[in-house]
Design a protein around this nucleic acid. Structure first.
Lengths: 142, 142
DNA sequence: TAGTAATACTTGTATATACAAGTTTAATAT
DNA sequence: ATATTAAACTTGTATATACAAGTATTACTA
């Protein structure tokens, strides 16, 4: 059944989460070559581009809860892609050489992902959509 | 940090999941008076309006995997809001009296939810957004 | 009519993410 | 200088959801 044929196709909750799940699926597929989930991959990219970045900053950039960031970092540490140093109440996250070596691969995944969805949806429509979602997300922030 | 200020504000994965999480949050809050998560609530509403509906239909209507539907039904059975009967390979789901009694309350939650987000985002913009998301979700379907 | 394929779930297991509570450190106020 | 509050994580625990594999039933095919 198409999303638009559902009896709840007029409901923001329904439409939004259905759409998000589909995008998520494409993303998961796009980052499989790197062996990472999309979220982990984005975190790693920031760490590579901004070595020493703090979890709090990562939470802001990725719009995720600090606890989620901690979990992501744990996973990436297990894979020896980042390391954490703690001094006082501050924590810094750095990429390992193995992590740094993934930069190009990760960028390719980004590109693959973009190609995958914009090919189906159209670049302009995607751009408009992303902009609207950002605008609305900001309005909803408290 | 605002979503639009993130270094990934141009990325569909990022923007879409951030927006979806915010909408989800409002939804969770809206359905709290009913003691249900939004997904469970929508499933229950369909069951009330369409007694005997099958899990496969529910999966189509809610755009969720059959296994997820099974889990939802289990939860609602625990709460004595629905019952399941199985005959052959077919399963039917019915609301209990306790479930049926929630219809009005659930509709109020829907209304509260709509008021909560459309108040911030504007009704027209929301309608456009929902329509776009449905359209794009359909395009992404295989 | 016997064997195979398809349907319609259900179960086992895994992941992403969240919230609330806990811990340590730093900043502020008296 | 001490006491209080705030900041910056981390940990325990819970939920939504998925995928893959399993089970039972029905439909199709030769």
């Amino acid at each position: 059944m198409k999303t638009s044929e559902s009896r709840y196709s007029g409901c923001m909750y329904f439409s939004c989460s259905a759409f998000a799940r589909k995008i998520e699926k494409i993303a998961v597929e796009s980052w499989k070559p790197a062996g990472l989930s999309p979220g982990h991959a984005y975190l790693l990219m920031i760490v590579i581009e901004e070595p020493g970045v703090q979890p709090g900053i990562l939470a802001g950039q990725l719009q995720l809860q600090p606890s989620t960031i901690t979990r992501f970092i744990e996973k990436l540490e297990e894979k020896k892609l980042v390391v954490r140093t703690t001094e006082g109440k501050l924590t810094n996250v750095y990429p390992t050489p193995k992590g740094k070596a993934m930069h190009l691969k990760l960028k390719e995944c980004v590109k693959h992902f973009y190609t995958a969805y914009s090919g189906v949806l159209g670049k302009d429509e995607c751009a408009r959509m992303v902009q609207s979602m950002n605008k609305l997300a900001d309005k909803l922030a408290k």
